[in-house]
Amino acid sequence: MTDPSTAEIRTFIVDNFLFGDENHPLTDDTSLIENDLIDSTGILELVAFLEQRFAIAVNDSDIVPANLDSIARISSFVGGRLGQSNSAAN
């Protein structure tokens, strides 16, 4: 079953970077940069979305391909941050 955050991230990317085209071949591991799906403006838009939707802080050093270049990486990054938040709360 797809993680809820993964589904939301996919929806955000399709809506904002693919103009809502659901037929575009976009797997969880598709590189957003190598496929020209995201540029500098898109990265800022994506980071703002993650910060607002998931209430996480994205630091400067977090803005790297390892965290943000595919749906899977973004989802993993968000999951890690949410996990940290939950641990801190407990």
Partner: peptide
């Protein structure tokens, strides 16, 4: 090719 640099 490296859109992260400008954004950061």
């Amino acid at each position: 090719e490296d859109p992260f640099a400008g954004a950061r």
